[in-house]
Amino acid sequence: MLVLKRKIGESLIIGDNIEVTILDKEGDTIKLGIRAPRTVRVYRQEIFEEIKKANQGALQTPSLQQLQNMMKREEK
């Protein structure tokens, strides 16, 4: 892993067209500004992992019969 030190207001350039700026620091929280082409998707890492996990979870599909039974029970 590349490790760099930056001050507030300083930036990094990744590739040709992604710019990451350190905007502010409050306690142990750092505020980043990211400028990137809209084709580049930027997410918080934990959200990315959560969505992947949810998609994997959706691959365990119940049968049609199970779905029908569930909705019947809920209507009661």
């Binding site: 949810a54 998609n55 979870g57 959706a58 365990q60 119940p62 779905l67 039974n69 569930m70 029970r73």
Partner: peptide
């Protein structure tokens, strides 16, 4: 997307 790990009630 829906995740139904154990029972559908906890989906």
């Amino acid at each position: 997307t829906v995740t139904a790990p154990d029972t559908l009630e906890t989906a």
